[in-house]
């Protein structure tokens, strides 16, 4: 709970910095302020994706519920951040690129859309597969292959055409942003990543409670079936009597 409050406070500080502290962009005007949250959500989405792949690998290797639960939590949070990234990107791109399809589908946009689709597939496998170890195993396979596919999509489109601005932060000769913007970027990034971590933790707990509940229900029905006078007993006496 205190962590959640801290995450919200962090987001509020980041929001204040984005709108009050960071200077207005000369070329793009106010729209450029989307950049801070857009980039931070993209980083959060890709980190969540890495966690899904790592957890999937761990689950296939070692088995067990814990890695799988982490994968489930990170996939859901990652999907939220992926959608957020795409929606913000679309809003930002409308006035800047004027939504020309030949310019829109560049490497980063395409691979982020594919990322969202892979997350959705991962969660859908869980929904449709028979619950239990089978759903976990099948979803883990999707998580790992999706993780391999997203960079392949990125490079295959990049090789074809791309439009996104080059790396701004890691450019040679120091970052190409004024210091006020740079501080805002870092504060927003930290706030969003912390928020994402808290969301994953909350989701992990929800999944944990759900697993516990399922285990309790299974144990209870087993006990009921075995107890004298339980439904299992009665059916058998009816059958044979």
């Amino acid at each position: 709970m205190p962590l959640a409050a801290l995450a919200v406070a962090g987001l509020l500080i980041a929001g204040a910095m984005i709108f009050l502290y960071a200077p207005e962009d000369d070329l793009q005007g106010q729209v450029q302020r989307i950049f801070y949250i857009h980039v931070s959500s993209a980083v959060a989405a890709f980190i969540c994706f890495g966690i899904v792949a790592g957890a999937s690998l761990l689950h296939l290797w070692r088995g067990g519920l814990r890695a799988d639960r982490l994968g489930r939590a990170a996939a859901l949070v990652g999907l939220v951040f992926t959608v957020n990234t795409i929606v913000l990107g679309i809003i930002w791109a409308k006035p800047i690129w004027n939504w020309d399809p030949s310019q829109t589908w560049d490497a980063r946009f395409t691979s982020t859309v594919v990322l969202g689709m892979v997350y959705a597939g991962y969660l859908m496998v869980r929904k449709f597969a028979p619950p239990g170890p089978q759903a976990m195993r099948l979803a883990s396979v999707v998580g790992i292959i999706g993780f391999i596919d997203v960079p392949v999509v990125y490079f295959s489109v990049r090789w074809w055409r791309t439009l996104h601005p080059g790396t701004v932060l890691g450019a040679a000769g120091g970052p190409a942003l004024p210091p006020a913007m740079l501080y805002t970027v870092f504060i927003t990034l930290i706030a969003v990543l912390f928020f994402a971590a808290v969301l994953v933790a909350i989701r992990y707990r929800i999944e944990w409670e759900r697993d516990e509940k399922a285990a309790r229900a299974a144990a209870a029905s087993l006990e009921l079936a075995q107890s004298p006078g339980g439904p299992g007993e009665r059916t058998s006496s009816l059958d044979w009597g």
Binding site: T110, V114, M117, V118, A120, G121, M124, V125, F128, A129, P130, L138, V142, I145, G146, D149, V152, V153, S156, V157, W160
Partner: peptide, 21 residues
């Protein structure tokens, strides 16, 4: 899985995109 006709396109198509590109 239960909805196999539904799940196959959802899973396979994103992964085929590199080949289509």
């Amino acid at each position: 899985t239960r909805a196999r006709e539904l799940l196959l396109p959802v899973l396979a198509m994103p992964l085929w995109i590199p080949f289509v590109v």
